[in-house]
């Protein structure tokens, strides 16, 4: 009688030790998370606070002066915009085309699996290796020289695997019911892809693509080898001109030129971060909107 009462009590009593271990562990996980979140916010905040005083209209609209120690960073901004546009033009058609081919047309089997592994692998190849490739193929072998076109092609190659994988995922996530419905009313395969599959996959394709472009805009190593000029105080005349570019400019002002005023460094960093941030924001907004509209 007595014993069973004790038993009952222990069963329903909360196990203090168990609860404490859980509390400690969860606190630890929270700390881990904060160890990532707080530095990120600090990094962004620090750049904004230190750079915001420098970034004004004249900083982004004027040529550098006095060995880049005064004036603005217009040519670097323009150069990066050229590169971004070129990258988009080369990488989107190729990447989305490859994704459509792989998901909708190619015979699914060992070969496509192999191709997918190769593409995934290439997404993880260091960007400096793409720089070497661009240098070998576009700058020298095809004779483009250090130029916008060589840089844009190199960056396009760099983000091609990202665009292919994210587009493929987006296309695969379109329910087969839509394809069937479209085919059953006598639409052809391409019509089905164009009018049903792609519109439905577009938010996913755009999100991945824009994130990829953002990455391309901030890359330094590949353009270091294929396009970027140390200092050219004028606008490019053709696709075969060298240009300055924001990430490379930041590298130069922060390491290569002694006596560079802090304000120019932080200003350049802020403009670059802002540009990448805009791409990131657009991609995130598309994703969030899409999430809400489907669920």
């Amino acid at each position: 009688m007595e014993q069973s009462q004790i038993k009952e009590k222990t069963i329903f009593k909360k196990d203090e030790r168990k609860r404490n271990t859980q509390k400690i562990m969860f606190a630890l996980f929270t700390l881990c998370m904060l160890a990532v979140i707080i530095p990120t916010i600090l990094i962004i905040g620090f750049i904004i606070v230190k750079g915001v005083g420098t970034v004004n209209w004249s900083f982004i609209s004027e040529m550098p002066r006095m060995g880049m120690k005064e004036g603005g960073i217009l040519p670097a901004i323009v150069g990066t915009l050229y590169l971004v546009v070129g990258t988009i033009l080369f990488s989107f058609p190729l990447g989305v085309g490859a994704a459509i081919y792989l998901t909708e047309y190619a015979e699914q089997g060992k070969l496509t699996r192999l191709i997918r592994i190769a593409v995934l692998n290439l997404a993880g190849v260091p960007s400096i290796v793409y720089g070497l490739f661009g240098l070998g193929l576009f700058v020298f072998f095809l004779g483009f020289g250090s130029s916008i076109i060589a840089g844009a092609l190199t960056l396009a190659c760099l983000i091609l695997p990202i665009i292919i994988t994210t587009s493929e995922e987006a296309i695969k996530s379109v329910p087969d019911g839509y394809r069937e419905a479209s085919l059953a009313v006598g639409a052809s395969k391409w019509e089905t892809i164009l009018h049903v599959v792609l519109p439905r996959a577009m938010p996913g394709i755009l999100t991945g693509g824009i994130l990829g472009i953002g990455r391309a805009a901030g890359e330094t190593a590949p353009i270091l080898l294929t396009v970027a000029a140390f200092f050219i105080p004028r606008m490019p005349n053709s696709l075969f001109d060298q240009v300055m570019a924001l990430p490379y400019h930041l590298y130069i002002v922060s390491t290569q030129v002694p006596g560079m005023p802090e304000s120019i460094k932080y200003g350049t960093a802020l403009v670059l971060l802002g540009l990448v941030g805009v791409f990131f924001l657009i991609a995130t907004l598309i994703r969030l909107k899409f999430k809400n509209s489907t669920s």
Partner: peptide
């Protein structure tokens, strides 16, 4: 998404 050159600068 933060460019590595920005992190390097910091």
């Amino acid at each position: 998404a933060i460019p590595s050159v920005v992190l390097g600068f910091l």
